[in-house]
Write a protein that binds this DNA or RNA. Structure first.
Lengths: 244, 244
DNA sequence: GTAATAGTGTCTATGAGACAATATCCG
DNA sequence: CGGATATTGTCTCATAGACACTATTAC
């Protein structure tokens, strides 16, 4: 019990973004180099405080996505990852951050962002490697985000968020291989994916210029949760570090 | 870009608890009746604002768990569920709530809480049924919490949190049946659970007074994530509503 | 003995992974 | 045609679920 005069404490609310995408065959992450204290010179996740009292959390996440990564709302998958708000995580005061996981399709340009010229894509293994200086508790957030993506690949259609609006089966396979860090059998993967209800739907034939037989094209189906699931398996690749 | 004089807005931070337990063979949830406006007379999740600027979020959740449910920290499983903080969810102002999922073992007493005499356990189906008045956006939080519990039963050892420190296989089975709302074959369940690495470890023999052959006792193993998983299946029980 | 629950054995259909074989493009 | 990738087929092994059966208690 507390006295009637007691008023609850207030905190600063921020959003942080773990933005994942595929570049080549490796999983990448957007990081921005901090130009001011604290953690000046270290790398941090894109993010920031709520603009004002009326701004929703989802809206703030989308705004940062646009400002710092140049990604429009319709382009990316966005979902909540968790809250990081223990006292002491930010030397500037009591800051509570709502971390989000964002998945972007393959992007040609390094970063089209406006706010942060110093933003750039980094291989996830490299960011998580020893010696890479990450600000605040963002290393933990990244680990949690990547693990969430890995887990959701099994039971949800999240993988299609890494692809363009239409894609081939082998492009989809590359997503699984990069995120899980495994190598999969293309033939078994092909049938496995086809067996899942409403995961992918045919979208005409391809005319990709690549060598070999042209692949059929598909787009994401309406189904969000996958049944049967795409179970994680296959042989893990050597070291997460030495991946090319 | 914003002017230098701009300061970020601050919000009120709260924690809310979806506390699940088994009573009889049904999944129950702790709800408190609101004695003040807003939503006076409706039922809400246990929870409240942070006590002060120094209190951690996890600490606040444990404090509410003790105050409103009489549950000590060591007794219950607690984990973060999500953040609910869109503007307008609380008429008193900008309140951001960190929702938690808590799992309590079977409890003899209705509620041993101190703060809220009006707290009580309710069957989840009943709370979610039409006509049951739930305050704020707590219905959504409950739905999300129950779904999270259902999902985590497959891949984590969460089910053991519903049991006492030692338990029989059939008690563990009751957890799965109640949370999933399905009926499982005891013989297949028995072997399935035994196959999972480090899920359960033998703990002497039982001397339960029940009729029939006494069951062996087990306690939770150290393993948190289950492999192979306990896959959800079996025939759904009739209606969630008519469950006894 | 019977009733009741605990625990074991066995069968079968299904599904995953290994891998051969075929198809369709480019040059 | 050969090289490369896509797609289909087939085999085998593991396992999930159905269900008969045995074990151990209370009465």
């Amino acid at each position: 019990m507390v006295e009637d005069s007691w008023v609850p404490p207030s905190v600063l609310l921020a959003v942080d973004l773990v933005i994942l995408t595929l570049r080549g065959s490796r999983l990448h992450l957007l990081m921005v180099e901090r130009g001011i204290q604290p953690y000046r010179g270290d790398f941090a996740l894109p993010g920031g405080f709520l603009r004002d009292d009326e701004e929703g959390i989802v809206a703030a996440a989308h705004r940062e996505l646009a400002e710092e990564a140049g990604l429009a709302a319709g382009t990316v998958h966005l979902e909540q990852l968790g809250v990081y708000g223990e006292p002491g995580r930010d030397p500037r005061g009591r800051v509570v951050s709502v971390a989000h996981l964002a998945i972007a399709p393959r992007l040609p340009e390094p970063v089209a962002g406006t706010d942060a010229a110093q933003a750039g894509w980094w291989p996830v293994d490299q960011v998580l490697a020893d010696g890479f200086r990450v600000a605040f508790d963002h290393r933990r957030i990244i680990v949690d985000g990547v693990e969430m993506a890995r887990a959701k690949l099994e039971h949800s259609s999240l993988a299609t968020a890494f692809c363009a609006s239409t894609f081939t089966i082998s492009e989809l396979q590359q997503v699984y291989e990069a995120v899980w860090g495994v190598r999969l059998d293309p033939r078994n993967f092909y049938r496995k994916v086809h067996r899942v209800e409403g995961f992918i739907v045919p979208e005409g034939s391809s005319r990709k210029p690549g060598t070999g037989r042209p692949a059929k094209l598909f787009r994401a189906g309406t189904q969000v949760s996958l049944y049967p699931p795409i179970v994680r398996s296959g042989e893990p690749l050597m070291s997460e570090r030495t991946l090319e």
